[in-house]
Design a protein around this nucleic acid. Sequence first.
DNA 1: TATATTAGTTTGTGTCACGTACTAAATCTC
DNA 2: GAGATTTAGTACGTGACACAAACTAATATA
Lengths: 149, 149
Amino acid sequence: MPAISTVDGLAQLSFLIQGALDRRAAEHDLSLIQTRLLGVLRDRRPTMQELAKLLGLDKSSVTGLIDRAERRGLVTRVPSPTDRRSSLVVLTDRARELGAGVAAGFESDVTGMLGVLPDQDRADLTALVSRLLVAYAKAHGVDLFDTTG
Amino acid sequence: MPAISTVDGLAQLSFLIQGALDRRAAEHDLSLIQTRLLGVLRDRRPTMQELAKLLGLDKSSVTGLIDRAERRGLVTRVPSPTDRRSSLVVLTDRARELGAGVAAGFESDVTGMLGVLPDQDRADLTALVSRLLVAYAKAHGVDLFDTTG
DNA sequence: TATATTAGTTTGTGTCACGTACTAAATCTC
DNA sequence: GAGATTTAGTACGTGACACAAACTAATATA
């Protein structure tokens, strides 16, 4: 029974989760970042600038990301009503469906992954992760976002 | 106080963790995948083939990854003593130091992140994550790997 | 109004990942 | 043991992704 430190454990867990998400996204021909984009846009219509901040990317990276997403019919650029320099990025219905598909597959992965734990542990883990995220978001002024749509 | 599902929570947590790891890696001019490579190689000297499996990559992807890593003095290709077709990928001392540097920074990030939780919760979380990983590894025949070096 | 700032794109560079096609070495089959 | 097959790894071409720097247009500020 190997001892796993918190740090290593969380790192490994994050790779496991990202791997699952990536595989599910690939089933729908989506990359991880595009899937994350779908999640972020599910309940937002940010400007490019805001999107860059939400995703932690440079604004020039977002241009390319949205170019590709728009070309594939996942998002549209809507001119901002208040600032003629900027546009709002809006999810299409098609993308919303795609996102839901990825989320469903991913959910079953996570459920399977957690299936090895007894019920009580599972509930505890959910509560702890939730508490952690809320506290972290509060401390960093980051608002919580849905990553999977 | 938003309610976060287990699935969304774990996805968000994984993005948070990967983000932290990526930023720490970038401080040392390392990409996420290279950092992961460092972690995987810390206690292994696999063939290219084995490495591909460990990282979940195509073998042709591994060629490029190791090319770049070798060019930067992070790894060396040592001819296999038993099979003249294959080589073993071995970490250099320099890479080992780099990996330790990333791990230190990352550890402080995680510590800070967990700092918002009371002691008991933190201990519980560690135990749960550890149990989850061990169970998962056992179920999937995957041996646990250190991701941060 | 003149200047500075901001939003977004363009261009060029590098990493990363894949599939296909290839070479050389091992393994198998007869 | 010679010939066919499999295996290990690389080469090449393509595309997504990310960044920095330079640029344009619009807004803010002085």
